[in-house]
Write a protein that binds this DNA or RNA. Structure first.
Lengths: 339, 339
DNA sequence: CTGTTAGCGCTTTCAA
DNA sequence: TTGAAAGCGCTAACAG
C-alpha cells in the first residue's frame, strides 16, 4: 500500500514518449495519422506508467458521454431483481456501457436521492423499478433529455418507455385455473395495492373470482418480505375455513407461504392434502421442492431487464431518439402444477 | 422525448441568477461567504433550470474523487453474490459513494476488461471476487494506489486486503459431523479446485475423511451451475454403492443436488431414507423444504460484502491508508440438521 | 503526420 | 462578500 491514488496523466505519457499529448490521444483513439513507430513509443510509455485514459475527463468534452447507465431497483438481494439487473448489465455491456446500481429499499426518498446522484454523474439513461407514484427527479431527468425506462411498474402520468408484465392477465388466468380445478376458497397473498404490480395482480385475481361469483375474502395484502408473508399465510391457515388454494402475487409471498407450509408439515398434525395448493406469480429457485401442488405464472426477469435496456439503448441512438413512447407488456406463461 | 441530453451548466445558472459562476459554486458547496439573499437567487435559478452539478467535471479537479466503487463479481444473478453486492452497496452508500457493478461470468478476460474500465472511470477502490489467479489489472490498480479488496477468494501473490471465509475449517467441521453421525460413504459436490474456495473446501472435506481413515472417492468437482450439479448428483446416486451423505461445497451444488433428489422422489421408486442427507456450505432460500436431512455451514454473504467494503473505506481514509494488509477470515456456523 | 490553441464544467487561489 | 484567472485531463479544430 502506498500514498493516495495518483494516476498518470496524458501529459506524463507524452513526456515519457517524447511526443505531444495530442499524439498520445490520437494513438489511444485508434492511431489515425500517427506513424507506427511513434505509436509503439506511446504504447510503451502507457504500459510503463500503467496509464488509463480518464473517462471522467473525456466525458465532459462536447460530444462525449459518460457511458453510464443508472439502475435503481427496490432490492438488490431479491433474486428476482438481481436477475433483472443481470439482464441490464448484459445489454449495457454489449455497447460498452457500465451499470451504476443502487438500492431504493422501496423508499421514495431513497429513490429520488439516487436518481439525483445518477443525474449528477451524467448517466446516459436510467432504468428504474419505481417505488411509488410521481417522482420529481424522474420528471427532471426526462425534461433534460435523459431517457428513463420504467421496468415492472409504471408511474401514472409519467410518459416514458416502460416494460411491464401482463400482471392482470396472468393473475386472472392463474386464478381461473384454480377455480376450474374446483377451488371455491382461494386465498390471496400480495404486496400493497399502492404498488403497481400489487394492484394489477390483485385486480386480475378479483376479476376471476367475480367472473365465477366468488367473493374475495381471504385476501392478505401488504407483505413486502417473505417473513411477513409467512405470518400472513399462518393467519390464513388458522381461519375456521382455511383456503384450499392460495394465490401468491410475487416471489416473496410465494416463498413465505411455502415456509409456513413446510413449518406446519414438520410440526406435524397436518398432512399435505390438508394444506392449500399454491399459484405463484413469479418463479423462484427450488420451486420444485414444494410439498403441495404448485403452479407458476412464469416469466424471465432477466428478459425484463434486457427488454428495458434495449428500449433505453434505442433512445440513446440518434435515429430512434424521438420515437413514440413505447409501453411494452410482456406475456407470462401459466405453468399448471409446474413441479 | 426531446433532443439529446443537454444539461444546464454552472454558467447558465450564474447567468440566470445574475452572479458569477463562482458564487453559484460556493452556494452549492455550503454557501460560506455568500449573502443569504444571493443564495436564494442561486437556488431559484438551480431549481428553474433543473441544474445538477457535474460530478465528472468536479472529479477531475485536484483533491476531488469520483465517489465510485468498482465491484466485480462472478454472477450477479446468484443470490449469494447479489446479497453480497447489497452489503457493498449499503456500506458504500453510507459514505455517499456509488457502486459500479459488473459481471465477470467467472471469466478472467472479462474480469480484466472490467477492472480496466473501472480504473478508467477513476473508481476510488475495487471490491473483487476474483475469477482466477493473477491479474495484471489488479496489480496495476494497487500499484497506482487504488485500493483493492478481495472477497471470498484470495489471489496468491497479490498482497492486498481480503475477506474470506473459514472454508477449510467449515468444511472440515461439517464433514466430521457427518462422519460422527455414522456416515462412511460421503460424496462431494463442488466447483473446481482451481477456484480458491473450491480448493479450500475440498481440502477441509478431504482432511476430515483422512482423519478417520476414509478414502475420498465419490468426489465430483467442477460444477459451476446448479444444472451441472444436478447431473453430478445423479451420477453419484447411480453408483453401485451410492453415498449416504453428500457434502455440497456451495449453494449452486446444494441446489443442484436437491433438485435431483426432488426429481427422484417425484419419479417414485425411492423413498427419502434411501437418499443421502446433505451438508451444504452456504445457505439458500427455501433450504427448509429439503426432503432429506440438511445441515448448513452458514454465514451471511451480506456481512461479507459489508466487511470487504469497510476494509476498502478504511484504505480510502488518510489515517488508515497505509495500515498493514488485512487478511480477514470470517467464521462460519455449523447448523446441524438445520431445517 | 504532428503540435498548438482553446475550451469542456468546475473550483482553488488570489485580488478586489 | 464577490469575481477573475488559471488549470484539472482530455481532445476537436486548426495550423504547419
Amino acid at each position: 500500500m502506498a500514498e493516495a491514488a495518483r494516476r498518470p496523466t496524458i501529459k506524463e505519457v507524452a513526456q515519457l514518449a517524447q511526443v505531444s499529448p495530442m499524439t498520445v490521444s490520437r494513438t489511444l483513439s485508434g492511431g489515425v495519422n500517427v506513424r507506427p513507430d511513434v505509436q509503439e513509443k506511446v504504447f510503451a510509455a502507457v504500459e510503463e506508467l500503467g496509464y488509463y485514459r480518464n473517462e471522467n475527463a473525456r466525458s465532459i468534452r462536447p460530444g462525449h458521454t459518460s457511458g453510464l447507465i443508472g439502475v435503481a431497483i427496490t432490492n438488490i438481494a431479491n433474486p428476482y431483481y438481481s436477475t433483472f439487473a443481470l439482464g441490464v448489465e448484459e445489454q449495457a455491456a454489449l455497447t460498452g456501457r457500465r451499470m451504476l446500481l443502487g438500492n431504493t429499499s422501496e423508499d421514495a426518498g431513497h429513490e429520488a436521492a439516487l436518481i439525483d446522484d445518477f443525474l449528477g454523474r451524467r448517466v446516459e439513461g436510467l432504468v428504474v423499478v419505481p417505488t411509488g407514484s410521481e417522482d420529481a427527479s424522474l420528471t427532471r431527468a426526462t425534461r433534460q433529455g435523459v431517457p428513463v425506462v420504467l421496468a415492472s411498474r409504471r408511474i401514472e402520468g409519467l410518459d416514458v418507455d416502460s416494460v411491464v408484465l401482463d400482471d392482470a392477465g396472468g393473475a386472472h388466468a392463474g386464478t381461473t385455473a384454480l377455480i376450474e380445478a374446483g377451488h371455491t376458497h382461494i386465498g390471496f397473498l400480495g404486496n400493497s395495492r399502492s404498488i403497481f404490480t400489487g394492484a394489477r395482480r390483485h385486480d386480475g385475481f378479483a376479476r376471476a373470482l367475480a367472473d365465477h361469483h366468488l367473493s374475495p375474502d381471504l385476501v392478505r395484502a401488504g407483505q413486502q418480505t417473505a417473513d411477513e408473508a409467512t405470518a400472513a399465510m399462518r393467519d390464513l391457515l388458522a381461519l375456521e375455513t382455511p383456503p384450499t388454494a392460495v394465490f401468491c402475487a410475487n416471489n416473496r409471498n410465494s416463498i413465505g407461504a411455502l415456509r409456513e407450509i413446510g413449518r406446519q408439515l414438520r410440526a406435524g398434525g397436518v398432512s399435505r392434502d390438508q394444506l392449500p395448493e399454491l399459484m405463484s406469480f413469479d418463479s423462484f429457485e427450488l420451486a420444485e421442492l414444494s410439498p403441495v401442488p404448485l403452479s407458476i405464472i412464469d416469466h424471465d426477469p432477466q428478459e425484463l431487464g434486457r427488454a428495458a435496456t434495449k428500449l433505453l439503448l434505442a433512445r440513446l441512438h440518434p435515429d430512434t431518439r424521438d420515437a413514440p413512447v413505447q409501453e411494452i407488456e410482456l406475456p407470462v406463461e401459466l405453468k399448471l402444477r409446474a413441479l
